[in-house]
Every structure is written in C-alpha cells, then in structure tokens.
Design a protein around this nucleic acid. Structure first.
Lengths: 206, 206
DNA sequence: CTAAATATGTGAAAATATTCACATTTCTTA
DNA sequence: TAAGAAATGTGAATATTTTCACATATTTAG
C-alpha cells in the first residue's frame, strides 16, 4: 500500500465505489478485476493497480468482496460520514437538485436552498429550508455547510461562489455557465457544463 | 499540425471552446495562452501544445484571436452545425433539461421528450413535443435524432438506452444512476452521477 | 492431499502526457 | 525602421500513467 494516490486513480476509485454500491443493491457479493473493468471501462490491470493503494483485499471466491472493498475505498478516500450541502439558484435545474432524493442515502444531506428572487423563495414548494441569497454567508456559516451546488445565471456565479467560500464552504459543484476562479487554496470546484458534455460526446464520435 | 488528437487534448479543447464563447460574450477579442491557462486550470505549455493540433493561430495583438481560434477548434473537432437531441425521463431533472435554454444557441436543438408515464406526458407544461416512452424507437428514427439525454430511474436505464441506440442515437448523456453498457461500436456514452461528482470533490479535498 | 485452474498483487517495461527551453514571430515605440 | 518586449510553436527532456508478465495466493476437483 502506497500513500499518495494519483488523481486519475482517485477519480476511478470514486467511480468504482459508486458501481460497487449499485452491484450490492443488485445482490452481488463478489466481483473480479476483469468484470469490474468491463463495467466501468477500465483495464483490469489498472483496476488492480488502483487497488494496490488500498491494502489487502482479496477475500471471497478468489474475487473481491464487494461490501468489504467498497468500505475500504470509502475509508481510504475519506468518504465516510454525512456532509451538509446547500443549493444556490432555484430555477429549474436548481430546484430539481434541491429535491434530488439520492443524495441523502449516499452521505449528502441537502439542508438549505437560496435564490436571489424573494418571490421564488416565498412560493417554492419544497421540504428544504429556503432563504434569500443575501443570507448565504451567515446561514452557511451558522450550519457549517460543507458543499454547495451552484445553479445560478453565469453573471452571478463568481460573486455567489465567493460568498459561499466566505461562509466556509469547501467544495462547489458548479452547474452555472461560467468558470469560477478562487484564489483560496483548499477549495475544490467541479464544473458541469451541459453544452460542454454534449460537445465532448460529439467530439469523441470522430 | 498533427492528425490524431489525444483524448485529454480533445477534452481540454472542448472546455477551452466553451470558455472562448463566454469570453466572446464578454466582449474580449484576444487572449494569451497564459491567461487562458489560468482561467481553465491548464498550464500555458499544455494550452499551446494542444493548439499545435490546430494549425496556424497566432493573429491578434500577439495573442490568439478568440473568435478565429474558437472557429478553428470547432471545425477541427467537428462541432459545427446543429444536432438534434431528445430527453428521456421527464421527472424533475429531465424536465429541467428539456427546458434548458442554452442548448439551442450552442448547436443542440431539443426536439423530443419521452416519459413512461402517460399521465405525465399529457400534463407536462412545455413547448417541446412529448410522447410516451414506447414510441422512442420510431420517433427517434423518424426525426434522425443525434443524441439523447437520459434521466430515468436506474432500473429503466439500460433498456431505454438500447431502444435509443436502436432508433439511431449516436451519443447518450446519462444522468440516471446506472452504468449503461453497449456492445455497439461508434456509440459514445457519458455518465454524470451527481453523487459521484460530490464524492470526487470530497476525495480531492484530502 | 495434490494438482489444475483462476485471480490477485506488483516491479519493470512501455506508452502517454506534460513541461521546458528556446528559436521564431509579432507588435510597440522611439 | 530598428531594437526591445512579449507571445507563440515545437522538438527534446521529464514525469506520469498504463500495461505487462509473472510470482503468489485461493479455490475446486479428483
């Protein structure tokens, strides 16, 4: 077991962990590196090499024990325990995410929503607490929110991101059509741009 | 100018193209590899190396001409012209995407929606034509739909994907919580798993 | 119990990708 | 118009990542 995990390996281990959860739900108990590789488009060599960062694993039927392996991955990547999340921007995408059920059973609890439109804040139909955007810093700080999901117009993205960071948020999943920059270290920002995703699919077809 | 573009370069060029569009909207006319790198978290060396797949570029104010550069990238990656898209699964996420405005101005026209619930098909409020899921193959084929965005429950994902592929779809952007496999070559599937995205942010914080 | 079959785990080799260094080009200004 | 400043473009060097090959471990079957 080595210590510093390379970024591509972290990325694949996250994916594999999700896959293992899905397999577990289907009742599977063990799986080989070859099959895991086929399901996730990773070569079996790379699967095994990635797992070499995890310590001893080989357990069941000559294959990997799915539950055990997933536990080890999540412990190693420090993905255990529940994190608090807020959603900023409650338009169509934002409010869909605000009510996305699967987060809770996977370690993410959505506890706050924000929007700059007072009218929308007052009329939105949801079980989550929703507040006007000018309260972001205060409320995020008060509840020690860990992550934010951003779905605001491009023009507002940078400013909102800064307020979230001021409030203490450590990671931002950014659906807004604007690249966010931060000077602060220790903040992770992941951009999801739907047009870009389609472009990438299209480019890979060549 | 070399010929086969490596995958990481394709990925970055897509990102850069989107960034250039945003800069253009802000009125910027030219930009250097260094600034482009800062905005997109790519080293200036890599930016320039990536551009070496594009041919001659250097034009304006000793920097890259934003419009010209973007045109070259999109031509090289064959991202020109409009593609037709359908959305399958019109729950919260699906209907948000169905009505996402930014696709149209960026080369993607959403022309069809599908859902397995007849009731939802009949009551949904949208300008896009919406049909029951059993009509997927026929309608996708008839309109020569290029891409599909999938936002169905995990249990339905694989079957729906197969029907889309049978209908002639060449790429699938998959928001469902299930990995889709296809035996067919020439089909590109891009998975977006929201839990996975948060996991990845979290793991990178370590 | 032993041999055959099948998987893992990992150092070494190969393949890829990134960074560097610097010659070349473009622009500015005096 | 010539020299200085600043950016590109790219072969070579470096670093990273993936693949391979095989020793080791586990399971099954006779």
């Amino acid at each position: 077991m080595k210590s510093k995990i390379p970024r591509p390996t972290v990325c694949r281990l996250c994916m594999v962990s999700r896959l293992l959860e899905k397999l577990h739900l289907q009742g599977r108990e063990s799986i080989s590196s070859t099959e895991l590789g086929k399901l996730s488009d990773i070569s079996p060599y790379t699967v095994r090499k990635d797992f070499s960062f995890l310590g001893d694993l080989k357990v069941l039927n000559r294959c990997y024990d799915i539950v055990f392996l997933n536990n080890i991955i999540r412990r190693r990547l420090q993905l255990e325990g529940e994190k608090l999340v807020c959603v900023v921007g409650l338009g169509r995408i934002g409010s869909a995410i605000l009510n996305y059920d699967s987060f809770l059973s996977h370690g993410y609890k959505i506890v706050l929503g924000f929007d700059s439109s007072i009218n929308r804040v007052e009329t939105i139909k949801t079980d989550i607490s929703v507040y006007p955007a000018y309260e972001i810093e205060e409320r995020v700080h008060f509840l020690s929110i860990d992550f934010a999901i951003l779905a605001v117009p491009a023009s507002a993205a940078q400013e909102v991101a800064q307020r979230l960071i001021n409030g203490g948020v450590k990671g931002i999943l950014n659906f807004s059509q604007s690249i966010i920059k931060t000077e602060v270290d220790g903040i992770v920002i992941q951009n999801i741009d739907l047009v870009n995703e389609l472009d990438f699919i299209r480019a890979r077809l060549n």
